[in-house]
Design a protein around this nucleic acid. Sequence first.
DNA 1: GGCTAAGGACGGACCTTCACACCTCTAGGG
DNA 2: CCCTAGAGGTGTGAAGGTCCGTCCTTAGCC
Lengths: 247, 247
Amino acid sequence: MTSSAPDIVFTAPVTEDVVFSPVRSQTAFEETVERLGTAIRLGLLLPGTRLPAERELCMKLGIARSTLRQALTALSQGGLLHASRGRGGGTFVADPQPPTEPPSAELVSNWREVSDCRLAVEVGIVALAAERAGDTALDGLAALVDLMERQLADFPAYRQSDVLFHVGLAESTGSQRLVAAMTSTQGEMTGLISLIMHPPEVLRSANRQHRRLVEALTARDGPRAARIMAEQVRATEHVLAGLLPSG
Amino acid sequence: MTSSAPDIVFTAPVTEDVVFSPVRSQTAFEETVERLGTAIRLGLLLPGTRLPAERELCMKLGIARSTLRQALTALSQGGLLHASRGRGGGTFVADPQPPTEPPSAELVSNWREVSDCRLAVEVGIVALAAERAGDTALDGLAALVDLMERQLADFPAYRQSDVLFHVGLAESTGSQRLVAAMTSTQGEMTGLISLIMHPPEVLRSANRQHRRLVEALTARDGPRAARIMAEQVRATEHVLAGLLPSG
DNA sequence: GGCTAAGGACGGACCTTCACACCTCTAGGG
DNA sequence: CCCTAGAGGTGTGAAGGTCCGTCCTTAGCC
């Protein structure tokens, strides 16, 4: 009977690998370091920004103050934060950001998995944004495109606006989970993207895609927006494929 | 100068809410219960399936045996597993599966967030599958569509094949993370979907969409596949919107 | 009857997290 | 000049989760 065939096909090792794959539960300390660290490195928290007071922040994060302090100490030692005591003091995002360290060998070897995942996340979010994004959000995205247009010669600045653009896209869906997925994805991509040369002409062409994307979203044309995003992600992927081992 | 506008827009509370949102790390025990529990409830592990031996499984999961045993005990008490001792024994997926409990009030109130997230995940995965899915995977998906065609009158059986279809879709991308995202999403949706009536005519029309989707994937037509998937998810969403508080 | 592979049970060591109380610093007001 | 409010900095002990190693019990097979 042919009806048993699919059962066999889908009891394939792939599913089992996923079900039985390692369940690494990060500690609250580790997760806090990672959360705040990527937010800072991605520019979601700008240099000079003052974090909420420890006693307040630990409540927002749902952890004990001592645990939070472990994380803050680690980030301070890494040069991402600095604390000042006394009245009017607080914990601030460090002003001279430490240079971004080169991506780990592990990230580089997994680059295709990361990039594939990014494609799915970006396209999925764009599809949802096409029906959910409000006018305010779209205006913000358009303003960012204009800003990037003026940053073509300064890659670090451009890249930062680029991150804000993609995160803003996720925000426009109104889904906190999707924003989290996007920040996590962008965090992983940052290391890889830093490996690539970015002459202004390339950035200009990329930004043209951004503009077309916003236009498609404004027109509520989900399929077109998805196609534009897919093209852009694939373009980056092709460049990476030329630079890195095929993984 | 207008260039400062986007900064203001994107330092919006939304991002901060995400960065400073609670970081509740599940314990290894909890995560294991959830992982195995959803795999069983979704039918990824069929009744009668024998799990790997404890000493082997705890290594695969990267946890201590005592922790694993806590999880297995919890699942046994929940009626999802049963263990038999002695040589040739083992831990098996229970044969008469306990009835699915009604979805929690918390899930019902968040249904729109869940459904939005699902749209993004499904569309993103389909977009990637359109360029990655191999012939074997596509054959498997087509076989599942045929199977579902014969299960229109038996909703539980249909739904199980439906889950396998969507998970198979994720598998066809070759990305473990996306398979994990899909299983998690399907796990959340199951409770909501069980609230809806499913006359055979509705299932037949849904399955027609499945078939068109596979055709689009076979033709490597990503945009079309994404559109079909978006339509289908939205259809479910509209039904839910009619049943549940607007959330 | 013994061997063996499986689940079942226990106890101690280690680390994380937590709550609570207390100390130190510093800008700004009286 | 002092004093106070608000911020970070410190210490301690309890509680709980996780791990590891060890041993016990069951039951099929030679």
